[in-house]
Measured scan of single mutants.
Amino acid sequence: TVKFKYKGEEKQVDISKIKKVWRVGKMISFTYDEGGGKTGRGAVSEKDAPKELLQ
């Protein structure tokens, strides 16, 4: 599970739902399947990112 803040809201998403991951400076950005055909997005700092996300 990845915990992150998006627009001031605390969120979390299961690693299995993450589609795409990329690095922006010291942040790790990602998109994930929100269900219902929607794609969500989020970002975590490199130090807070789970190891599975960095692979």
Rank of each mutant, 00 (worst) to 15 (best):
T1W: 12
T1S: 11
V2W: 03
K3V: 11
K3W: 09
K3E: 05
K3D: 05
F4C: 03
K5A: 07
Y6D: 08
K7Y: 09
G8H: 05
G8V: 02
G8C: 05
E9T: 10
E9Q: 14
E10H: 12
E10W: 15
E10Y: 14
K11P: 01
K11G: 03
V13C: 05
D14C: 07
I15Y: 06
I15K: 02
I15E: 02
I15S: 03
S16Q: 11
S16C: 07
S16K: 08
S16G: 10
K17H: 11
K17L: 13
I18V: 09
I18A: 02
K19C: 09
K19H: 10
K20F: 09
K20R: 12
K20T: 11
K20M: 12
V21I: 11
V21Y: 05
W22D: 02
R23H: 07
V24L: 06
K26R: 10
K26V: 12
M27R: 07
M27T: 09
M27E: 06
I28D: 00
I28S: 00
I28T: 01
S29W: 15
S29T: 12
S29M: 13
S29E: 15
F30T: 00
F30A: 00
F30Q: 00
F30H: 00
F30L: 01
T31M: 12
T31N: 04
Y32L: 01
Y32F: 14
D33R: 03
D33Y: 07
E34V: 11
E34G: 07
E34N: 07
G35R: 04
G35V: 08
G36R: 07
G36W: 08
G37S: 06
G37H: 04
G37T: 05
K38D: 05
K38E: 10
K38A: 09
T39Q: 08
T39R: 08
T39S: 08
G40M: 09
G40D: 03
G40Y: 06
R41P: 01
R41K: 10
G42W: 03
G42T: 02
G42L: 02
G42K: 01
A43W: 15
V44D: 00
S45N: 15
E46R: 09
K47H: 10
K47I: 12
D48P: 01
D48M: 09
A49V: 05
A49Y: 04
A49I: 05
K51Q: 14
K51W: 15
K51H: 12
E52P: 07
E52R: 08
L53H: 01
L54A: 07
L54Y: 06
L54E: 03
Q55Y: 10
Q55S: 11
